[in-house]
């Protein structure tokens, strides 16, 4: 079976999209650490629960950005086909 140059490029784009999603490791670790410290802060001071929760969610949403950049790169490689 013959693989044309176009097929090879599509295959490499799919592998690259998979590799781009390795970027999801960092935000996962970071959000977990933030949630852990949030839980311990609520344990120490249950009265400040709503403040702690909103601060934690804001920080997590900002920390998520790098993972989303990886997602955008993967989606561009898969569906926009910039090298095809």
């Amino acid at each position: 079976m013959g693989i044309s140059g176009q097929d090879f490029i599509y295959g490499c784009s799919a592998i690259g999209a998979g590799l781009a999603l390795i970027a999801g490791i960092g935000p996962g670790v970071g959000q977990g650490i933030a949630a852990g410290y949030g839980a311990s802060a609520v344990g120490r001071n249950p009265g400040a629960r709503s403040d702690i929760t909103s601060t934690m969610l804001l920080g997590q949403a900002v920390a998520e950005t790098t993972g989303l950049y990886g997602l955008v790169v993967a989606i561009i490689l898969m569906f926009v086909k910039p090298f095809g």
């Binding site: 900002v62 998520e64 950005t65 989303l68 950049y69 997602l71 955008v72 989606i75």
Partner: peptide, 16 residues
């Protein structure tokens, strides 16, 4: 760029 990409990518992942 960062604030617009953050909003876009979050919504796009949900839509997908």
């Amino acid at each position: 760029l960062s604030i617009s990409l953050r909003l876009f990518a979050n919504l796009l992942s949900g839509v997908i």
